[in-house]
Amino acid sequence: MTEAVHQPEDLLRAVRAVGVSDERLLQAVRATPRAAFVPAGHEAHAYQDVPIPIGHAQVTTQPSLSATMIEGLDLSGDEHVLEIGTGLGFQTALLARLAADVVTIEMWPEIARQAGRNLARQGIRNVELRIGDGSGGVPDRAPYDAVIVSAAFPEVPAPLAGQLRRGGRLVQPIGPGGREKVVSFLRTATGLERARVLTPARFVRLHGQYGFPEA
């Protein structure tokens, strides 16, 4: 039996199916070719709504899950965004289309370099890509209007909460790694306020000084 060939519109349908309705976000998904952000040899799976391995026990975030998390940031277009975990840059590209600029940080240098090449080929220039420990954020570019964390930890690391502007939103999978609730937080005068649970999910662990220790 011949395997079904998936198209970009299949990904858009998958994103709509999980309840994402923000038209700007749906247009960003439509305009961003996921096939340009997957490892060589995985292009046939680019428009399936599945995570894809990228090395170092890391995987890309499932596109519908990325869209759900981004929608939870409630972006209007003029935000300064921090992304923890660049991966190969697909989620970064979506954020870049929806915000004024994005600072993104990736722990693995070769993954970060590939992400940089992927973004450059798509002409996306409002992204600053850093290599390092994302659990501590990027303090020299703070404060941020929104923060998105693509790895799991039982609580929001203090540096990430501290780098979020009052009134800003932070989305992170909360849990031990492998069984999480993705939660949207609002930064108030007194700290982070848990706004709502967006979805259950499975994520790799957030490692680093303010996350899980390296094995």
Rank of each mutant, 00 (worst) to 15 (best):
H6T: 09
E110R: 14
E79F: 04
G77E: 13
P8T: 13
D101M: 09
L82T: 00
T188G: 12
F212C: 05
Q91C: 12
A195G: 02
I124K: 03
I124A: 00
I148K: 03
E214Y: 15
L12S: 00
Q172M: 15
A112S: 08
D78N: 13
T2A: 14
D22R: 10
T32C: 12
V183A: 09
T104R: 03
L192S: 04
S21H: 13
R194F: 01
F37M: 04
A100F: 07
D101H: 15
R166F: 01
L88Y: 07
A151F: 02
E71V: 08
R34G: 09
H56D: 14
G87K: 00
L12T: 05
R166D: 11
F203V: 11
L160Q: 03
I52T: 05
V149N: 00
E214H: 15
P154T: 03
T61K: 03
I70C: 09
R141T: 04
D22H: 10
P154A: 11
A17G: 11
V50R: 13
E106S: 01
R13D: 14
R13P: 01
G167K: 11
R179V: 12
F153P: 02
I148W: 05
A152Y: 00
H80N: 08
V5I: 15
W108Y: 14
I52E: 00
E180C: 07
A215M: 09
A99M: 07
G167M: 05
P53C: 06
R34D: 07
S135C: 10
R205V: 10
G211W: 05
G77Q: 08
Q163F: 00
G137E: 00
L198T: 09
P200Q: 09
P159W: 04
T2V: 14
R121T: 09
A14T: 07
A152D: 01
A120K: 13
G41L: 04
I131R: 04
T61I: 14
P176G: 05
G87S: 02
Q209I: 10
V5K: 13
Q27E: 14
A151T: 02
A40S: 10
E110A: 10
R130C: 05
W108C: 03
G89I: 04
G19C: 04
G87F: 07
I111K: 00
E23H: 07
G134P: 09
M1H: 13
E9S: 14
R169V: 08
F203L: 08
T32F: 09
N118V: 01
I124D: 07
Q7A: 12
T2M: 10
G123K: 01
F212E: 02
A46V: 10
P200T: 13
A146E: 07
I52H: 02
R194D: 05
G191N: 04
I148S: 00
R121A: 15
S76Q: 15
L164W: 02
Y47Q: 03
L26Q: 03
G85F: 05
L88H: 03
I105K: 08
W108A: 06
A96D: 03
P176I: 04
D140G: 08
E106Y: 06
P8C: 02
A4H: 13
E3C: 12
A161V: 01
A36Q: 12
V20T: 02
K181C: 12
Y47C: 03
A46F: 05
E83G: 00
